[in-house]
Computed example of a mutant assay.
Amino acid sequence: MDVVVGRAYKVSLEALKRFPWGKYVKFAFLFGSASSGGPAGDLDIAISKISLEALGDLLADLAKYLSLPEDFIDLVVVTERTPCPLVLEALKGVPLYVADWDEVYKYFNICQDQQIDSRKLRLLETALETIWRR
Rank of each mutant, 00 (worst) to 15 (best):
Y97F: 10
G32Q: 02
T126I: 14
L91Y: 05
S33A: 03
Y9N: 03
G38S: 06
R18G: 12
R81P: 06
D71C: 15
Y65G: 10
D74G: 10
D102H: 06
Y105D: 04
L124Q: 09
R18P: 08
D61F: 07
D100G: 05
G41Q: 10
G22M: 09
P83Q: 14
L58E: 03
L13F: 07
R18I: 11
E89A: 15
G41W: 02
E89I: 11
K64M: 15
V78L: 14
K17G: 05
K23Y: 10
L123N: 12
V3G: 04
S33W: 07
V76E: 10
E53D: 12
E103R: 06
K26E: 12
A46I: 01
S35E: 03
D117L: 15
T79I: 07
K26S: 10
Y97M: 02
V77G: 12
L123G: 12
S48Y: 01
E80T: 13
E80D: 15
L66K: 11
V5R: 06
S51P: 04
V87M: 09
W21E: 10
R7Y: 12
R122S: 12
R7S: 14
F108G: 06
Y65Q: 09
A99I: 01
K64G: 15
L88A: 03
D74C: 12
L59G: 11
L62C: 08
A46S: 00
P39K: 04
E80L: 14
R119S: 12
Q112H: 04
S48M: 01
R119H: 11
L13T: 08
I47P: 00
F29Q: 07
F29L: 02
L75H: 14
G32P: 04
Y105T: 02
L58A: 03
K10N: 10
L59C: 09
E80R: 15
V77Y: 11
E89S: 15
L43P: 02
L68A: 13
C111N: 06
E125P: 03
A54C: 01
S35F: 01
G6E: 08
A90W: 00
L43Q: 03
W21G: 09
L62P: 05
G32T: 01
E125H: 09
V5N: 13
P85F: 14
L30S: 04
Y24K: 08
P20I: 08
F19T: 02
M1W: 11
A127W: 06
I73Y: 13
A28F: 07
G37I: 01
